[in-house]
């Protein structure tokens, strides 16, 4: 089972707010997820990205694939495998 780390949009209509979740790649939008490891608020200046670094590293080391956006957020936050 391939696992992905992706963003899931929450928040109000005009104020996007995302959770960083770990989920089976086959369930991108059914709401199920394995773990929630952070949040991302792009509307803040500077943008607010909070993530449990340990958990992120653990998932990456276990082969979870971040989406392009998450990979960029990780890169900015200095998180690597």
């Amino acid at each position: 089972m391939a696992v992905k780390i992706r963003l899931r949009r929450m928040g109000q209509k005009h104020a996007p707010f995302y959770r960083v979740i770990v989920a089976d790649e086959r369930s991108p939008r059914d709401g199920r997820f394995i773990d929630e490891i952070g949040t991302y608020d792009p509307t803040k200046e500077p943008m607010a990205f909070r993530v449990d670094e340990e958990a992120a590293k653990k998932w990456l080391a276990n082969g979870a694939q971040p989406t392009e956006t998450v990979a960029r957020l990780f890169k900015q936050a200095g998180i690597q495998k």
């Binding site: 209509k13 005009h14 943008m47 956006t69 957020l73 890169k75 900015q76």
Partner: peptide
């Protein structure tokens, strides 16, 4: 893909807001 991570994310944030409107 090589675009600066910050620019790329900002762009994505704009689009997400525009999409809501």
């Amino acid at each position: 893909k090589k675009a600066d991570a910050k620019d790329w994310l900002q762009e994505a944030a704009h689009l997400s807001v525009y999409f809501s409107f």
